[in-house]
């Protein structure tokens, strides 16, 4: 059980790390801050009953993100960047294009990619966090990697 007195220490020590995950999900630091604060506020209410605060907040972060995405699909996301942000010529190694492609993935696929390849969580852990079956995580990962045109052999391996 987490003590409410520890909430402040948790925010100080762990929120920057969670903010990075939120940034990978939203691709915008301002929206990421908003998402993180929403997740922390929800966690505060449940805090006395939480056994593992970080995994709990991460789960709330991801579920809040996917629910926002569902509701925001036809409206512009708030952004702290200026409207006329420059678009880079695609660099030779395609990294910028890959980043943009990650940003175009549907919310659940993007969440799976971030959790598996940034947070390094196992398929079963991602499934538990997202409240779905391990097979769903595998199929979402395979679809996302195919969209990103990431290594075909890995895609096939995950499908199997």
């Amino acid at each position: 059980m987490a003590d409410r007195a520890m909430f402040q220490d948790f925010v100080s020590a762990r929120s920057d790390r969670l903010l990075r995950t939120a940034y990978l999900l939203t691709h915008d630091w301002g929206t990421a801050e908003d998402l993180l604060q929403e997740a922390l506020a929800k966690a505060w209410s449940a805090w006395p009953g939480i056994d593992e605060p970080e995994s709990y907040v991460r789960r709330v972060l991801v579920t809040t993100y996917t629910s926002w995405w569902r509701r925001r699909w036809r409206r512009e996301l708030p952004s702290d960047t200026i409207p006329d942000v420059a678009v880079l010529d695609p660099p030779a190694d395609g990294r910028e294009e890959l980043w943009r492609a990650v940003g175009r993935l549907p919310a659940r696929q993007r969440a799976v990619i971030v959790l598996r390849f940034y947070e390094d969580l196992a398929v079963t852990e991602v499934a538990q966090l997202m409240g779905c079956a391990a097979g769903t995580v595998k199929s979402q990962t395979a679809k996302a990697l195919a969209s990103l045109r990431v290594d075909e052999s890995i895609v096939k391996e995950l499908r199997g």
């Binding site: 990075r20 990294r95 990697l145 045109r149 990431v150």
Partner: peptide, 14 residues
């Protein structure tokens, strides 16, 4: 692109 490229990109960005 490989999965390692994807991992590197996510780390670099975040």
């Amino acid at each position: 692109m490989t999965v390692q490229d994807l991992r590197d990109l996510l780390r670099e960005r975040a």
